[in-house]
């Protein structure tokens, strides 16, 4: 199993865009090595702007660059960008529907040892509530690259959420990828696991193990959080009758919340949610944290059994 951080996909895509699109510019807030924007910086220094430790200014500067016809990718850790600069994203960027792309790194508790202050667990909630914003959570480095390339072509603001740790690559280069359209990772009939981000690998492990117990799990990669693929969610509810959502993020107002909103309006079925349960994280290694906070394939299997009992 090849492992690579999804943020590498961002860095690779920026290099491709640097070559293919002269209007692409990149901004960072003193974390260029960690966010992989240093790859772009080293090759296209005249189109790279380090704004220093000033995230709000970085978002405003990106807005100005977009007003001037550029396609800025503003980049730093998710907590500092989606949290600290939320008003700049809302009022300066989204209200004016400016063509600003946001790369939010270190999403999820798997950031590990840095602890709660650096573990972004709220960006899905914070971003999807803002009108005009679009949001993608890639599940592996390949999807990270595809999503970043796609974001450059999508008009208006787009938030991309990446993770720090090297995680399994389980999609293929040749897999079709379309913004706003969920990808079917496993066909199944008894229950549907809907997930986003690298934790989808745990969902696949869970589906494989449930298959040995004779339970058929559909697994959907809901890489686009907004606009969410309502059609795929409703079809999953109609065809499998039960849903488990899986995310490395607060389930409240996160993917779990987003899927539940679609279901209650269209096709109410039992839902179980796997994710962070209204708590902050803590320091620890990623594997220990995944166990403690209930984010492993075993937790997903438990949720599947629970939801099947409610069917």
């Amino acid at each position: 199993m090849i492992k690579k951080p999804t943020r590498d996909g961002y860095g690779e895509a920026l290099l491709i865009l640097g070559e293919s699109n002269p209007d692409v510019v990149v901004l960072d807030a003193d974390l260029a090595m960690s966010t992989r924007t240093n790859w772009f910086r080293d090759k296209y220094p005249e189109r790279f702007f380090d704004i220093g430790i000033a995230e709000q200014d970085m978002l405003g500067t990106a807005a100005g660059l977009a007003m001037g016809g550029k396609i800025p990718f503003a980049t730093t850790y998710g907590v500092f960008i989606a949290g600290r600069a939320w008003d700049q994203i809302r009022t300066t960027i989204c209200y004016a529907n400016l063509n600003v792309k946001i790369g939010g790194m270190h999403g999820g508790i798997s950031v590990g040892a840095d602890g709660a202050t650096h573990q972004a667990l709220e960006e899905i909630a914070l971003m999807r509530v803002i009108p005009n914003m679009k949001m993608i959570v890639p599940c592996d480095a390949i999807e990270g690259r595809k999503a970043t390339l796609a974001a450059a072509e999508i008009p208006g603001p787009v938030y991309l959420r990446f993770a720090r740790e090297a995680t399994p690559i389980f999609t293929k280069e040749e897999d079709e990828w379309q913004f706003g359209k969920a990808n079917l990772l496993r066909a199944g009939t008894d229950v549907t696991i809907i997930g986003c981000g690298p934790i989808l690998y745990e969902a696949l492990l869970a589906a494989d193990q449930m298959a040995q117990e004779g339970i058929s799990c559909r697994v959907l990669n809901m890489h686009t959080i907004k606009p969410i693929d309502t059609e795929a969610i409703v079809a999953a509810a109609e065809e499998t009758g039960a849903i488990v959502t899986v995310e490395e993020h607060q389930v409240n107002a996160g993917l779990g919340g987003a899927v539940a909103e679609v279901l209650v309006k269209n096709k109410p079925v039992p839902v179980e949610m796997v994710g962070i349960m209204d708590t902050f994280g803590e320091s620890g290694n990623p594997d220990e944290l995944a166990i403690k906070y209930g984010l492993t394939h075993r937790d997903i299997m438990t949720a599947v059994r629970r939801v099947l009992n409610r069917k």
């Binding site: 709000q56 405003g60 100005g64």
Partner: peptide, 19 residues
């Protein structure tokens, strides 16, 4: 530019100047 939340304009001006 769209404005109303204070403190945000000068950053935008800088971005325009860089563009």
């Amino acid at each position: 530019n769209s404005s109303g939340s204070l403190g945000q304009g000068l950053s935008q001006a800088n971005g325009l100047a860089l563009a």
